[in-house]
């Protein structure tokens, strides 16, 4: 499933926004998007994801996706049983899953009320994995249920038995409105190893040793011995970029604490320096 999704993503990115022409979008808007697209060709992951978030959060295609995803989810629950379901979502998918589940799992749900819903706790899935969680960012646009208060949480008042939230310290999509909810059986995993300058990349997220270890445990009941895990970590960190990362981290923290122009300039400089280091090290950019 993931690989076909990646392939589709790549194809859609190559095609760009040209498909919107003649598809009910004002010509000026298309022109703006295409112009924007050409300006950002070297940073494709950034603009596609930011604009996807914008489209999802501000148009009725968002609610349409909720209905379609809810139907698909309901079919899977009917077929396999809710307790056997593990949901893995990344980036905008975290917002889609959050918004859909918060509308499906409703306090006060009544099985005779003619509304498609589940009572929290009664139909909990096994685990929910959110990678590069942007649900709070999308919430700024669509103003649906607040991810810090919603039923998308583990336990008897939630929708899942376990929730794993994984972010990369240097993934820009997780800097704004970071998901930090604290609850029993909600685990935050933070990665700080840079092997690919695109820290938002799902492959990089899912192959982080701590994440893989938890996935093996919860999905397949497999436990990785401590010595083997240490060996995995050492191998994973081979080829990572360490030089420059700390400078960028310090600069970003300064921006977060006090977003002055001077600090922003420092952060951009540190980012550029990191890219140069990565290029010289032959890292995939």
């Amino acid at each position: 499933m993931f690989w076909s999704q990646f392939a589709d993503n790549a194809a859609a990115r190559q095609e760009g926004f040209a498909f919107l022409t003649g598809a009910g979008v004002a010509a000026e808007l298309v022109q703006e998007l295409v112009t924007l697209e050409s300006q950002f060709n070297n940073d494709e992951f950034l603009y596609t994801h930011w604009l996807d978030v914008l489209l999802y959060g501000t148009t009725y295609f968002g609610p349409r996706i909720h209905a379609q995803f809810a139907a698909k989810f309901n079919n899977l629950v009917s077929e396999h049983g809710h307790g056997n379901i593990h949901v893995v979502c990344h980036s905008l998918g975290t917002a889609v899953v959050h918004d859909t589940f918060s509308k499906l799992y409703r306090h006060g749900a009544n099985i005779f009320d003619g509304i498609p819903d589940y009572l929290p706790g009664n139909f909990n899935i096994n685990t929910l994995w959110t990678f590069a969680n942007v649900s709070r960012l999308a919430n700024l646009l669509n103003h649906l249920e607040d991810p810090n208060q919603s039923t998308v949480a583990p336990g008897g008042n939630g929708c899942t038995n376990y929730l794993y939230n994984i972010r990369h310290e240097l993934d820009p999509f997780t800097w704004i409105k970071q998901y930090k909810r604290e609850m029993d059986y909600l685990t935050h995993i933070e990665n700080n190893v840079v092997r690919n300058i695109n820290t938002h990349d799902f492959y990089e997220y899912v192959t982080a040793p701590e994440v893989t270890r938890k996935l093996l445990l919860k999905l397949f009941d497999l436990r990785v011995a401590a010595d083997k895990f240490d060996a995995c970590v050492a191998q994973y960190e081979q080829g990572s970029i360490t030089e420059g990362v700390n400078d960028l981290k310090a600069a970003l923290e300064a921006v977060r604490d006090d977003p002055s122009l001077n600090d922003l300039q420092k952060a951009f400089k540190a980012c550029k320096a990191l890219v140069e280091i990565a290029k010289q090290a032959g890292v995939d950019i």
Binding site: M1, F2, S4, Q5, D8, N9, A11, A12, F19, L20, A23, G24, V25, T48, D52, L55, F61, R64, I65, Q68, F69, K72, C89, L92, G93, V96, V97
Partner: peptide, 12 residues
């Protein structure tokens, strides 16, 4: 228009 929009999210 909608199908194209969700093309990127087929996986879900």
């Amino acid at each position: 228009q909608y199908e194209r929009y969700i093309q990127q999210y087929k996986g879900y």
